[in-house]
């Protein structure tokens, strides 16, 4: 999907649930993946993802394609929700607790399998444990740069900072992380 088509789709999604579904399907995996890597906990990752999309849906009518792409906007919401979780240790409203499981699904089994899969990535989990000791801003740049493979410009969009600031933030974050090894 090119930029213009996505722009149109976002405008349509403000009124049309179908259009919103397309955007949701496109970005769910990216957002969930990013949050999971940040928190390394399946249950918390699900809750923060739910919060992120709920907030995105509520704020969609205010979104304007001005200097920030829809993808960056979603990552920004996700980053803020993660920061909120860490800062306030706030109790998340789990949508899973609200809605009934979809018929013919096995959520418990799925989570167990996902947990097993997560534990297989020992190198990542060691890295995640070290990175989580850094300040939130440093964590954000490292995750976005190395695990989400985002460009400096995109990270700037997500964190609302200039490219130069991101570069120096990244440099300092790597230095701090190096000291932990």
């Amino acid at each position: 999907m090119d930029k213009e088509s996505e722009k149109e789709l976002v405008e349509k999604a403000k009124k049309d649930p179908e259009a919103f579904s397309i955007l949701y399907e496109k970005y769910y995996s990216q957002i969930f993946g990013y949050i999971l890597k940040r928190v390394a906990d399946l249950e918390i990752a699900q809750d923060i993802t739910s919060e992120t999309f709920l907030k995105a849906l509520k704020k969609l009518w205010t979104f304007k394609w001005r200097g920030i792409s829809f993808s960056s906007w979603l990552f920004k919401i996700a980053s803020n929700e993660i920061a909120n979780f860490y800062r306030k240790k706030k109790k998340l409203v789990s949508l899973e607790k609200i809605s009934e499981p979809v018929a013919n699904s096995d959520p418990l089994g799925e989570i167990m399998r996902a947990q097993e899969e997560l534990e297989k990535h020992k190198d990542f989990l060691i890295l995640q444990e070290k990175i989580s000791q850094l300040p939130l801003k440093d964590q954000e740049v490292i995750y976005l740069r190395f695990f989400e493979k985002k460009k400096i410009k995109e990270i700037g969009e997500i964190l609302g900072k200039r490219e130069g600031t991101i570069k120096s933030l990244l440099h300092r974050a790597i230095e701090k992380l190096r000291e932990l090894f």
Binding site: S29, G33, L36, L42, E110, I111, E117
Partner: peptide, 9 residues
């Protein structure tokens, strides 16, 4: 990196 997705969620 873990590529995990919980379809039910």
């Amino acid at each position: 990196l873990p590529e995990i997705e919980i379809t039910s969620h």
